[in-house]
Design a protein around this nucleic acid. Structure first.
Lengths: 348, 348
DNA sequence: CTGTTAGCGCCTTCAG
DNA sequence: CTGAAGGCGCTAACAG
């Protein structure tokens, strides 16, 4: 209906020139308060809305004030919170958020990112779908669009990232278990050839060493980081000579699987065996009350990611930077002290 | 760094004119396959990215292919799912989603919507923050931007909406309770002066009538639709002459409050008293296992809202339309049959 | 089927 | 402090 009102309309109505209006728009100090007030008034009267598309066209672009956020599973409360965290800082910096969900679908991720590019995002925060490769981000970085990867790392990508403190997380879990009297602690699940596995395992080693536990490689049971893998892993861990009484798991999926496996053997997690999970991607909220987990604050991660991105946007182009987000151990119910663990059972 | 490559660049490289390229872009049938292929090839080679900003500028605008989604609490799983539902259909229609969170903050909502307008959204899906008024949406509708309001209604606004079937939801709950043997059923919580209250109460009345229950106004206890209000309401409901043995609550918050109130009196919800909640905004997932709730499918609502919006966008401008989303009764554990209820207790 | 010509709404010189 | 031009990347008419 009503044609779009443009700078020219309001210039006419206010009796000034378009350039004056333009200056007001970017509130330049070059225009006196009086005219400025008049102009803003007429803008309001005529219902003027700024057209960023046009502005971006004229300007160098990429100062579109829009930042893209794509997450792999918005249904998961963890990522929803992450997005909220991002949104908070993005909004207060005067940007808007383009948020999309990939549902772990690589094709969709590609489409979504392409679409965002067409709209001229000035930066991207990505919680990548599984199996995302550095090549998927290549076009972005060559185009000079800042990218920060969150939660999961993308192997060879030269972009900034925000992830949780894998080393310290596992170490805290080990210390917790030791404080409950455990000394035979298994490390379950995960693929050895990933960086995350290395970090987590290293945390395990370091803490074990610090607590002067004997280091027994047979307690390290690598397996697919899935629920099924967890079940397999716990089964194998329980088949060794000197059985463990507790386990730290590569992620929550593995932990759930371990609980499944324990129950299949008539053991109740939390009572007969202590299990600690790591808040990963699969499930942020656990249904197993006795499960202790290493949790990260998703909103905090989101905020940090956004801040990092904004910094890079403002700096033109900065070096890729990596932030490790601190984690905390969440003990929901008793994790399972050793005197209630399988050791007694073994003696019985 | 690398300057943006434009249609003109690829025209030059492919040895055609810009218009040809433009035609290819909107894959018009007017260009023969061969040239089309050549053009697309060079586009890929030069790493061309379409500039929607420019296109929107030239075109009538509002076919920006971006649709805005603003939600009052993304932290709440219900709304996250809603957003996912919207995203699904929005994406497959070739649009992108601008998603923002208001956190129930009206000012923020205003800012966010303004920002989206500047970016030229072609439509808006809004799950309004509390106390949103029709006036807040006025500018949008006068600008001819289709709006669909989801979950919550905005009183006088002339926009489409997608909400749950309040009438049938409560009615189903009442029928369920009657089938368990209850005949004294309270209706707890909510402010009488809202449309939603009317609808829900009407559902209660209709079902009570259909089940030939006596209609006793003292069983209707209106109170703030909050947890505190629920506690107050149940307390008042239990103070009347002939006590109820069950209650349908205005929303989940009230239901939780009612449970609090029951426990304070030494009654266990689900055993001594049946409580039914309504999936509203506060908490989508309940922590009280014995609580039966009237649930809506948030993703489904999101999809429906998006479809409605797209329809309006394509139709230019349609009449405001209202969709009521069906609900279903979710019985988690036994809701509490009357023989285990307070009636026996009264007789004892 | 292809090339030419005009702008879309805004911002930036560059002179007044 | 203001006015006049020019152009960002693209599409819409027309002409070839």
């Amino acid at each position: 209906m009503s044609k779009r009102v443009t700078v020219i309309d309001i210039a006419k109505a206010a009796g000034v020139s378009k350039s004056t209006v333009s200056l007001v728009l970017q509130n330049s100090p070059l225009v006196n308060h009086e005219t400025k007030a008049k102009v803003t008034a007429t803008m309001r009267d005529l219902g003027y809305v700024y057209n960023r598309g046009a502005a971006n066209l004229r300007q160098s672009s990429s100062n579109s004030k829009i930042i893209g956020v794509v997450v792999n599973d918005l249904t998961n409360g963890f990522f929803a919170e992450l997005a909220v965290g991002v949104d908070t800082v993005v909004q207060s910096a005067g940007f808007v958020q383009f948020l999309s969900n990939t549902g772990e679908n690589l094709d969709r991720q590609k489409e979504v990112i392409a679409s965002m590019r067409e709209h001229g995002i000035s930066g991207l925060i990505l919680s990548p779908a599984r199996a995302t490769e550095a090549a998927d981000l290549k076009p972005l970085v060559t185009a000079g669009i800042p990218v920060v990867v969150a939660v999961r790392n993308v192997p060879g990508a030269k972009v900034s990232s925000v992830a949780s403190d894998n080393h310290e997380g596992i170490a805290a879990a080990v210390r917790h278990l030791v404080s409950l009297g455990h000394s035979r602690i298994a490390f379950l699940g995960g693929f050895r050839d990933t960086a995350v596995f290395e970090e987590r395992l290293e945390g395990y080693r370091a803490a074990a060493l610090a607590c002067s536990l004997e280091y027994d490689p047979s307690l390290i049971v690598d397996f697919a980081p899935s629920r099924a893998g967890g079940a397999e892993a716990i089964s194998r861990a329980l088949s060794i000579e000197e059985k463990p009484t507790a386990a730290v798991c590569f992620n929550d999926a593995v932990a759930f699987g371990a609980c499944d496996g324990l129950r299949a053997k008539g053991l109740e997690p939390g009572r007969d065996f202590a299990v600690v999970g790591f808040d990963d991607v699969i499930e942020a909220k656990t249904a197993v009350p006795a499960l202790t987990t290493i949790s990260v604050d998703p909103q905090g991660m989101g905020r940090r990611a956004a801040q990092l991105l904004l910094k890079q946007i403002n700096a033109g182009k900065a070096e890729a930077e990596t932030i490790v987000s601190s984690v905390r151990l969440v003990v929901r119910e008793s994790c399972g002290a050793v005197h209630g663990g399988s050791r007694e059972r073994k003696q019985a």
